[in-house]
Design a protein around this nucleic acid. Structure first.
Lengths: 147, 147
DNA sequence: GCCAAATCTTAGCCATGGCTAAGTTTATGC
DNA sequence: GCATAAACTTAGCCATGGCTAAGATTTGGC
């Protein structure tokens, strides 16, 4: 019933793999927030905390706490009771996150995943795709378009 | 310079996407641990805390704390100063995680990602791939083998 | 222009998952 | 079989990211 054995790799190598995943996790919330804030600014003219919280499906105080961290780390600016703005650093991250997200989403569609599932999965996957893999995704999207 | 606008989706829908990612995150550590513990038992006969910690690249107390949580939640058993065992529930999760991990890894290889990158990326991606997408991955692996 | 509603902040709680330092138990080597 | 080394636990720290309850500010309607 069990799968075939796989030999254990070098402990240090394996540790580096997990270390990389932990670092990706640290950036996840940041990327999700700036991407969402950017979307809101584009389509609604401004990003209000109430809207960020609603779209993330969390409470306003939770969203506010993370926004404070983003401000501390230089991704956004905002004054009390005002809307949220992206810094240059935040805008850059939003742009690259969005691009990455779009590629993953389109790739999933290209290989035959349904639109609904592609939307769900791309949100989780986008933070863990390396540049190399992203390049392969891009190539496959292009091939698909040609057909 | 900016990407094209994408229309905002329904707030509630979007919230559900993020909710799903948060739930996946909750399972990630659990899956990584049981998968690793299973690997250690298979190849070394037992899983010692010192080895789990080393391979995850974290301190022994940190690993120990999570093992305690896994025990509380019924995935593993272990007595003080003894090695770690999987419960049936833990073994089942390890098996399905391993299978999922293998499919993601082989899929990346099949589409042309390097072995090194496939190893890195599959560790981050495995927790966020839906059953539907996994099915598509499997199909593509099979097609590749045929060629 | 004032009152109510909406928005935002503050305070304080919890779980997870990292860490170090120090103590306990088990295993090992001589 | 005893001293030392290795493995493990305990205690206590921190950051993140959830929550609720309650207070402050801003906005909007009349």
């Amino acid at each position: 019933m069990s799968s075939p054995d796989r030999p254990l790799q070098n402990p240090n190598q394996q540790a580096q793999v997990f270390e990389r995943v932990r670092q990706a996790h640290q950036m996840e919330a940041t990327e999700d927030y700036v991407e969402l804030i950017d979307d809101l600014i584009r389509t609604q003219g401004e990003a209000r905390l109430v809207e960020v919280a609603e779209r993330l499906g969390i409470s306003q105080p939770s969203a506010g706490k993370t926004i404070a961290r983003l401000q501390r780390d230089g991704y956004v600016t905002s004054e009390p009771y005002r809307s949220i703005f992206l810094t240059d650093k935040g805008k850059q991250l939003a742009d690259s996150s969005r691009a990455r997200h779009d590629i993953v989403f389109k790739f999933l569609l290209a290989i035959g995943v349904s639109e609904e599932t592609a939307k769900l999965d791309s949100e989780g996957l986008e933070h863990h795709v390396s540049d190399e893999t992203l390049g392969v995704f891009k190539r496959i999207i292009k091939q698909q378009v040609k057909k």
